[in-house]
Nucleic acid binder design. Structure first.
Length: 316
DNA sequence: AGTGCGTGTCTCCTTACATCA
DNA sequence: CATGATGTAAGGAGACACGCA
C-alpha cells in the first residue's frame, strides 16, 4: 500500500487526531500495538509523507502498525476508540496493566484522568480492547472546527443488551474474568461492559428507591387515616364520658377499636424489613431503613442480593 | 506493624447524544 | 421540521480495599 491508499481511504494512522490524515511515528506509540482487527497494516520501514512531514514506520519490535479509520485513535496499548467520544486530547500511554504492575514506570507520569482510565486496563483487558474491531468510520462531517468531533454515543444492539441483561440477572457485578468474557462475547470493550453494569446497577437502585418511596407513601397515608380515626374515637369517648355513660359501656366500647385497628397494608407486609420490626421509620436513626449498605462496605455488600427486588424482577 | 503509593472498582452525579412523541 | 422529554452510554470525582515496597 502507499500513502495514496491512506489518503483515499481517509484513514488515520496511529494517533491521528486531526481532520486531515495524520501519522504518528512509532516512537510515539508507547507500547507495541497489534493489528488485531484494524483495517490495514503497514509494513515496517514504509515511509509515509503527510502534512509536510515524513515518518518511517519502523517499529522497534513489532512489524505492524495499525491504520485506523479516520476519527479513531490508539489508546493504552492499541485500544481503538472513537476520538469523537473524547472531551480532551487523546494520548497514548504505556498502560500499566494490572495491579501494581509498574509503580515506577514512565506511565505514572501521565496524569490526565482519561489517561488514568486507560492506564487502569489490565493486560487482559488490553488484549480484549485490541480485539474489538473498530467502529465504522465516522463520516467526518460531524467534526467541529478544531477537527475534534463531539463525543458520539454508541447504541448497544438489542442482542447485546439482552445478553447483558441475562448476565446481570445472574450477577449484578462482574469480576475481571467475567467482564473479559462478556466483552469478548459481545464484541465490546471491557470498559463498556463495566459501564453498562454500573449504569444498570444505578437504574436498579433508582427503581428500588421508587418502590420504597411508594411503600412509604402508602404507609404514611394509612397512618394518617388511622390517626384521624383514633382522634375521632377519642372525641367520642370524651363525649360519652361527659354524658355520664357507665364505665362498663365505655370499657366495652374501648375494646372494640383494638380489634378493628387497621394495619398499614404495606407495613403488614413489610414490617420486618421496611419498618424495622416496628422500629424506626421516623428517621430517628441516622440511616434510612431503605438506604443501601454504607459505601465503605460496598466491596463486601451486594445491595442487589437483598430480598427486596431482585434484578430479575426489576422493570428495566 | 505501620505507612505511602499505585491500582481497581465502586457509587454518585453529570453530561451528551439518540430517539420519540 | 423544530422542540422538549426521556433513556442511556460515558466521563469525572471521591471513596475504599488491596497488594507491594
Amino acid at each position: 500500500m502507499d500513502i495514496d491508499d491512506v489518503r483515499n481511504a481517509g484513514l488515520v494512522l496511529g494517533l491521528g487526531l486531526s481532520s486531515s490524515p495524520a501519522v504518528t511515528p512509532w516512537s510515539e506509540l508507547h507500547r507495541p500495538i497489534k493489528a488485531a482487527d484494524a483495517g490495514v497494516v503497514v509494513e515496517p520501514n514504509l515511509t509515509l509523507a503527510l502534512s509536510g512531514e515524513s515518518f518511517t514506520v519502523a517499529p522497534p519490535k513489532k512489524a505492524e502498525v495499525i491504520i485506523l479509520p479516520r476519527n479513531k485513535a490508539v489508546y493504552g496499548g492499541g485500544a481503538c476508540e472513537d476520538i469523537s467520544a473524547r472531551d480532551g486530547p487523546a494520548e497514548s500511554n504505556g498502560g500499566g496493566g494490572g495491579r501494581q504492575a509498574s509503580p515506577h514506570s514512565t506511565v505514572s507520569s501521565f496524569s490526565s484522568p482519561r489517561v488514568k482510565r486507560e492506564r487502569d486496563l489490565s493486560s487482559e483487558e488490553e488484549e480484549a480492547e485490541r480485539a474489538i474491531p473498530p467502529k465504522p468510520a465516522a463520516t467526518g462531517d460531524e467534526e467541529d472546527v478544531d477537527g475534534i468531533s463531539p463525543r458520539k454515543k454508541l447504541r448497544l444492539t438489542k442482542e447485546q443488551s439482552a445478553l447483558l441483561e441475562e448476565s446481570f440477572k445472574q450477577h449484578s457485578t462482574l469480576n475481571p474474568k467475567q467482564k473479559q468474557a462478556l466483552a469478548r462475547q459481545l464484541n465490546l470493550r471491557p470498559r463498556q461492559v463495566e459501564v453498562w453494569f454500573q449504569n444498570r446497577r444505578a437504574r436498579t437502585k433508582l427503581k428500588q428507591t421508587e418502590v420504597d418511596c411508594e411503600i412509604l407513601k402508602k404507609c404514611c397515608e394509612s397512618l394518617t387515616d388511622e390517626n384521624r380515626r383514633l382522634q375521632k374515637e377519642l372525641q367520642e369517648l370524651k363525649a360519652m364520658k361527659l354524658q355520664g355513660q357507665s364505665p362498663a359501656a365505655a370499657a366495652l366500647y374501648m375494646h372494640v377499636p383494638a380489634a378493628t385497628l387497621t394495619m398499614c397494608p404495606s407495613c403488614e407486609r413489610e414490617r420486618e424489613r421496611v419498618c424495622g420490626g416496628g422500629g424506626d421509620v421516623s428517621g430517628s436513626s441516622a440511616k434510612s431503613p431503605f438506604s443501601m449498605a454504607p459505601k465503605a462496605h460496598h466491596h463486601l455488600y451486594n445491595p442487589f442480593n437483598t430480598t427486596r427486588l431482585p434484578p430479575a424482577e426489576s422493570t428495566y
